[in-house]
Nucleic acid binder design. Sequence first.
DNA 1: ATGACATTTGGTCGTTTTACCATACGTGCA
DNA 2: TGCACGTATGGTAAAACGACCAAATGTCAT
Lengths: 106, 106
Amino acid sequence: MNEKEKALIEAKANVLKSLAHPTRLWMAEQLAEGEKCVCELAENIDADFSTISKHLSVLKQAGVVEDEKRGKMVYYKLKVPCILKYMPCVEAVIRAKMEEQTVLFK
Amino acid sequence: MNEKEKALIEAKANVLKSLAHPTRLWMAEQLAEGEKCVCELAENIDADFSTISKHLSVLKQAGVVEDEKRGKMVYYKLKVPCILKYMPCVEAVIRAKMEEQTVLFK
DNA sequence: ATGACATTTGGTCGTTTTACCATACGTGCA
DNA sequence: TGCACGTATGGTAAAACGACCAAATGTCAT
């Protein structure tokens, strides 16, 4: 693996990592419906505002979302919407695992 | 968000997390070509065997890969191959970010 | 300007992750 | 049976992460 491939793998892993947290994944899924301000996202998250803000910052750093300040509020939206098209496959992994465990009881 | 939704989000985040490490993502990509034994994967990774084994164990726990022991060797393969179909979109995120940074020099 | 509001930033601390080393386990061959 | 080989497991230390609190920033209305 050369330097370039290594850098690409690291970059990809980083994008995945940004989504690999329940709160951040949930936020991204919410944004799939359209842009939302931080306050709207925060309504349904039981965590400090500063925590929420930091999670959004991680997604932004990763390039998954972008923000725009309008008045007092900051709006976030998905930057590359396909980023969530993947979830059915992720769910397939989970289903496969659950089925396997279910078999143990038969 | 009810308990069930919460559990699903956590499960999904967990699958993503298993892939959100350069070494593990690289391994998964290698396995897309077909099953490989630990020794084959190890050839191209600069890390301790125990480290490699633990990474594979994380992928297995997450349900992304499965293993099969044949003789002295253990073979791993992708369990749900679609899990890598996503990478083009992940790369799109990276490209978008890079283009943005490039613009800064114009 | 002042205060209230929405969000971000800095600091601290407990938890999790990751890498390495040493060691254990299971398998096939001498 | 004993040894070498391929892989997994346990322990430990360093680094990264995530949550909270406190305080800063920027914006709007007064």
